[in-house]
């Protein structure tokens, strides 16, 4: 268990709902759910995930902390917004899903190797350095995330697409060397650090 997770468990004891309300984005909405099931029935992922939003919300109220935070359900959400549109209580379900995913990630108990989580990490690390997304580096990082051999295979398979993009001036090979960045990277980095500090305070990661 990570230190943060231990602290959270100690702090909220058996009140997981309160933990979610205080630390998860839009978590204060969870108690508004009336268990009608329309979000579960509207999710295009159908049987592909174990816990529908409705089920997760009930589990939160039932204090099933471990099961909720280690679930891969919220990582499966494609942000189609079907549930938000139909929820009779207007819960921002999609946002709560992402909030839960983010919280589980920060506590480092989200499922390891979960593809959405891995991609999200790569994307963030790529973006947060320069303030710009370096698509070439991001694509390469994606290709090689499962090891060198698989990376080469992926790159070969995508070769013609890549060349097409270069020809259409949608992909600049020079990006590999540094790449473009925002004008004042120093200030950008400070801004991100400040945002992180605020978020940590809100989520209780710092006292």
């Amino acid at each position: 268990m990570t230190v943060q997770n231990q602290q959270a468990v100690a702090r909220y004891r058996n009140d997981f709902l309160r933990e979610v309300e205080e630390r998860v984005e839009d978590g204060e909405w969870v108690k508004m759910c009336m268990q009608c099931g329309v979000c579960a029935g509207s999710c295009p992922l159908g049987n592909a995930w174990q816990h529908t939003p409705q089920k997760l919300f009930m589990m939160i109220r039932a204090g099933k902390r471990e099961e909720v935070l280690t679930s891969d359900a919220m990582w499966m959400c494609t942000s189609c917004y079907n549930c938000i549109v139909r929820c009779p209580r207007k819960l921002p379900i999609t946002h709560i899903m992402h909030g839960l995913a983010n919280y589980a990630h920060r506590l480092n108990i989200a499922p390891k190797g979960q593809p959405t989580r891995e991609v999200a990490k790569l994307f963030w690390n790529n973006l947060a350095k320069t303030g710009r997304v370096n698509e070439l580096k991001f694509s390469l990082a994606m290709y090689f995330k499962d090891g060198f051999v698989q990376g080469i295979k992926n790159a070969m398979a995508m070769q013609s697409v890549g060349l097409g993009l270069v020809k259409a001036k949608r992909l600049n090979p020079m990006e590999l060397f540094g790449g473009h960045k925002c004008k004042d990277t120093g200030s950008f980095n400070k801004m991100i650090a400040k945002a992180r500090e605020i978020e940590d305070r809100k989520k209780g990661f710092t006292s």
């Binding site: 268990q35 009608c36 099931g37 329309v38 579960a40 029935g41 509207s42 529908t52 409705q54 139909r86 009779p88």
Partner: peptide
């Protein structure tokens, strides 16, 4: 709460989709 209704073309019946809570 039924999520959606689809038409079963051949019979004119309706198919109700949802999750039994």
């Amino acid at each position: 709460k039924v999520a959606s209704i689809k038409l079963h073309e051949a019979s004119g019946d309706l198919v109700l989709h949802g999750v039994n809570t």
